[in-house]
Computed example of a mutant assay.
Amino acid sequence: MTGMTEISSAAELRELIGEPSAHAAHKTRDRLHELDRQWLARSPFCLMATSDAQGRCDVSPKGDPAGFTHVLDDTTLVIPDRPGNKRLDGMLNILSNPHIGLNYLLPGRGDTLRINGRARLLRDAPFFDALVVKGNRPRLALLVEVEEVFYHCSKAFLRSDLWKPETWEPDALPARARIVKGLEAKDVPLETLEEHYGPQYAERLYG
C-alpha cells in the first residue's frame, strides 16, 4: 500500500504522542486494594487477553453472575471456566505462555479495572465448590497471580456512547442464526439455527 507512514521505534512514537503524566505513568500497583475487591464483587464480565508462544493474540469474553471472579488473596484470583465451544484458545495459549491480561467491566460505568499477571490451569481445588453456578461446578479454572493492577478512565466509553441505549441498534445486522448460517454452518437449515439460538438458548448456558 502506498501513502502510509509507519512508526518503527519507541522514540518516534514518543516524539509523536509525548510522555504520560506522572499520575498515568505511576498508577500501577502489584496487589489488589479493597476498592478493587469491591469492583470484582460487582463485575459480571471481563475480557481475557492471552497469546501463544509465538505472540499470536486472543481476546475472549468471560461472563457470569457478578462476583464470578473468586479472590483468594490480594495477589491471587480464580476465574471459573464454563461450558462453551471447546476451542480453548486462551487456555491453550496459557499452557505455552502464562501471561494474561484482564479488563473488568461494570455495566453503565465507563472506567474499567485492568489486571495483568500470570495464569495457571487448575482441574480441581478446594475452592471449586465456591464457584458453582446453577448447579455447574467448573471442570477447569484459571488461577491468576496478580502482577499489575490499575484503572482505565472512561474516554473510550464516552467516545463510543457504549452505554447509551438510544444509540443501540441490535437489529442493524443479521441475527446470530443468520451469521452462523452464512459463515459456519451453511448446510444447516436456518430454521434449525433460529431454534437453537432462540429463547431456550439462555436456558442451556450451564448445561
Rank of each mutant, 00 (worst) to 15 (best):
R87I: 06
C46V: 04
A119C: 07
I79L: 15
D36S: 10
L158P: 02
L105I: 15
A66G: 09
A25L: 13
I115G: 00
R42G: 07
S51L: 09
A119S: 07
D111M: 15
D81S: 15
P189E: 01
H99V: 06
R31Y: 06
G55D: 09
L40K: 03
M1I: 02
L92Y: 13
F128E: 04
R87S: 05
D58T: 09
R87F: 07
T28D: 04
P138C: 08
I94K: 00
G67Y: 11
L158E: 13
R82Y: 15
L205G: 01
I79M: 08
D161A: 06
R37K: 12
H196N: 12
A125G: 08
G110W: 03
A11D: 15
D129L: 08
P174K: 06
L72Q: 13
S9I: 06
L173E: 14
D36N: 13
L40A: 04
T28N: 03
D81A: 13
N97Y: 05
L105W: 04
R159T: 11
M1F: 02
H196K: 14
L183G: 00
D89V: 09
I179T: 05
M48L: 15
L143N: 03
R37G: 06
S9H: 07
L158V: 09
R120I: 03
I94H: 00
M48Y: 03
D58I: 01
D52C: 08
A53I: 07
H33A: 12
E191G: 01
T76Q: 14
S160K: 10
H196D: 09
N85V: 07
R120C: 07
R114S: 05
A177C: 05
I100H: 02
A10E: 05
Q54L: 12
R42E: 12
L16T: 10
P65F: 15
P80Q: 09
G63Y: 03
S8Y: 03
S60G: 04
E147V: 06
L140A: 03
D58H: 12
P44V: 09
P65G: 11
R178G: 00
H26T: 11
P98V: 07
I79N: 00
A25N: 08
P138Y: 02
R120M: 11
A119V: 11
R14F: 13
V133P: 00
T167Q: 07
D36F: 08
P80F: 11
M1A: 06
E34G: 05
L102V: 06
D111S: 15
R29I: 04
D187T: 12
A49I: 06
P98M: 08
H23E: 15
G117N: 08
E145T: 10
L158S: 05
E145R: 12
R109L: 14
L32E: 01
E148C: 03
F150Q: 01
L40R: 02
L47F: 14
F157I: 13
L106M: 12
V78Q: 02
E34M: 10
P174R: 11
P98L: 09
T50I: 01
V59A: 02
V71M: 14
K186E: 15
H23Q: 15
G67D: 10
A175K: 02
A10G: 01
N136F: 15
S60Y: 05
A177Y: 00
R31T: 09
G110I: 09
A66I: 10
P189H: 01
P165T: 12
H99D: 07
P165A: 09
P107D: 11
K181E: 05
E148T: 06
K86C: 13
E12K: 06
G18W: 03
A172R: 13
D81L: 11
